Deep mutational scan, measured.
Amino acid sequence: SEEEIREAFRVFDKDGNGYISAADLRHVMTNLGEKLTDEEVDEMIREADIDGDGQVNYEDFVQMMTA
C-alpha cells in the first residue's frame, strides 16, 4: 500500500531530508545485517535513482518498490 511504501521510505531516509543517500542506505542495510561494499551501495543507488541526481527521492523509491 502507499502508506507502507511511505513508511519504508521514512526508515531509509535517516536524516528526514526527503532523499535516501548512499549513507542512509548503507546504514539501513548494515542494521539488517547486510555487509555491503561501497561499490555495492553505490550500484543500488544508481539503479534506484531514476532522475539521475545521485540520491533516491520519494518518487524514485515508489517506482523501485512497485516495479
Rank of each mutant, 00 (worst) to 15 (best):
S1E: 05
S1C: 12
S1I: 08
S1F: 11
S1N: 07
E2N: 07
E2K: 11
E2S: 08
E3D: 11
E3T: 09
E3R: 10
E3N: 11
E3Y: 13
E3P: 04
E4A: 12
E4K: 14
E4V: 10
E4W: 14
E4F: 11
I5L: 12
I5P: 00
I5N: 01
R6K: 05
R6I: 06
R6C: 05
R6E: 02
R6G: 01
R6N: 02
R6V: 04
E7W: 06
A8R: 09
A8P: 01
A8E: 03
A8I: 05
A8K: 09
A8M: 11
F9D: 00
F9M: 04
F9E: 00
F9A: 02
F9I: 02
R10Q: 05
R10K: 09
R10E: 02
R10N: 04
R10C: 03
V11P: 04
V11A: 12
V11R: 14
F12G: 01
F12V: 03
F12K: 03
D13K: 00
D13E: 02
D13I: 02
D13F: 02
K14I: 11
K14N: 06
K14P: 08
K14Q: 08
D15R: 05
D15I: 07
D15M: 09
G16A: 06
G16S: 06
G16R: 07
G16M: 06
N17T: 13
N17G: 05
N17C: 05
N17S: 12
N17A: 06
N17V: 05
N17D: 07
G18C: 02
Y19T: 07
Y19F: 10
Y19G: 01
Y19H: 04
Y19E: 02
Y19S: 04
Y19D: 01
Y19K: 13
I20Y: 00
I20G: 00
I20M: 04
I20C: 03
I20E: 00
I20R: 00
S21R: 08
S21I: 04
S21E: 04
S21H: 07
S21F: 07
A22T: 13
A22G: 05
A22W: 11
A22V: 15
A22Y: 13
A22E: 08
A23Q: 14
A23K: 12
A23N: 10
A23R: 12
A23E: 11
A23H: 11
A23P: 05
D24I: 07
D24H: 08
D24P: 00
D24E: 09
D24G: 03
D24Q: 08
D24C: 14
L25E: 00
L25M: 05
L25N: 00
L25V: 10
R26K: 10
R26G: 03
R26N: 03
R26C: 03
H27R: 13
H27V: 12
H27W: 14
V28M: 03
V28K: 00
V28G: 03
M29Q: 01
M29G: 00
M29T: 02
M29H: 01
M29Y: 04
M29F: 08
T30C: 09
T30E: 10
T30Y: 13
T30Q: 12
N31M: 15
N31G: 09
N31I: 15
N31L: 15
N31K: 14
L32S: 03
L32T: 03
L32H: 04
L32A: 03
L32E: 01
G33E: 04
G33T: 10
G33F: 15
G33C: 15
E34Q: 14
E34G: 14
E34I: 15
E34F: 15
K35V: 09
K35E: 08
K35Y: 11
L36A: 04
L36N: 03
L36Q: 03
L36V: 08
T37P: 05
T37V: 04
T37F: 04
T37N: 05
T37E: 03
T37Y: 05
T37Q: 04
D38I: 12
D38H: 09
D38G: 08
D38A: 12
D38N: 10
D38V: 11
D38E: 12
D38K: 14
E39Y: 10
E39T: 09
E39Q: 10
E40M: 12
E40L: 08
E40Q: 14
E40S: 06
V41H: 04
V41R: 04
V41G: 01
D42Y: 10
D42M: 11
D42A: 12
D42H: 07
E43I: 14
E43S: 14
E43C: 14
E43A: 15
M44G: 01
M44Q: 02
M44E: 01
M44L: 10
I45H: 02
I45R: 03
I45N: 01
I45S: 02
I45C: 04
I45A: 04
I45Q: 02
R46F: 05
R46N: 07
R46D: 05
R46Q: 07
R46C: 06
E47C: 15
E47L: 15
E47S: 15
E47Q: 15
A48Y: 11
A48D: 02
A48N: 06
A48Q: 06
A48E: 03
D49G: 15
D49S: 12
I50Y: 08
I50A: 10
I50L: 11
D51E: 08
D51P: 05
D51W: 10
D51C: 10
G52M: 10
G52E: 12
G52V: 13
G52K: 12
G52F: 09
G52L: 10
D53K: 13
D53Q: 11
D53N: 13
D53C: 08
D53S: 13
D53R: 11
D53G: 07
D53T: 13
G54I: 04
G54Q: 05
G54M: 04
G54D: 06
Q55K: 13
Q55G: 06
Q55R: 13
Q55W: 12
Q55F: 13
Q55C: 10
Q55M: 14
V56D: 00
V56Y: 09
V56S: 01
V56M: 05
V56A: 03
V56I: 13
N57G: 07
N57R: 15
N57K: 14
N57Y: 15
Y58H: 01
Y58M: 05
Y58K: 01
Y58D: 00
Y58P: 00
E59T: 05
E59P: 02
E59W: 08
E59G: 05
E59K: 06
E59L: 09
E59F: 08
E59I: 06
E59S: 07
E59R: 06
D60F: 15
D60P: 15
D60V: 15
F61R: 00
F61K: 00
F61I: 15
F61L: 10
F61Y: 05
V62Q: 02
V62Y: 06
V62A: 03
Q63G: 06
Q63C: 08
Q63A: 10
Q63T: 10
Q63S: 09
M64Q: 07
M64V: 07
M64W: 10
M64A: 07
M64G: 04
M64R: 15
M64E: 03
M65A: 03
M65E: 01
M65S: 01
M65W: 07
M65V: 05
M65I: 08
M65D: 00
M65H: 03
M65P: 01
M65L: 14
T66G: 08
T66Q: 08
A67Y: 03
A67W: 02
A67T: 14
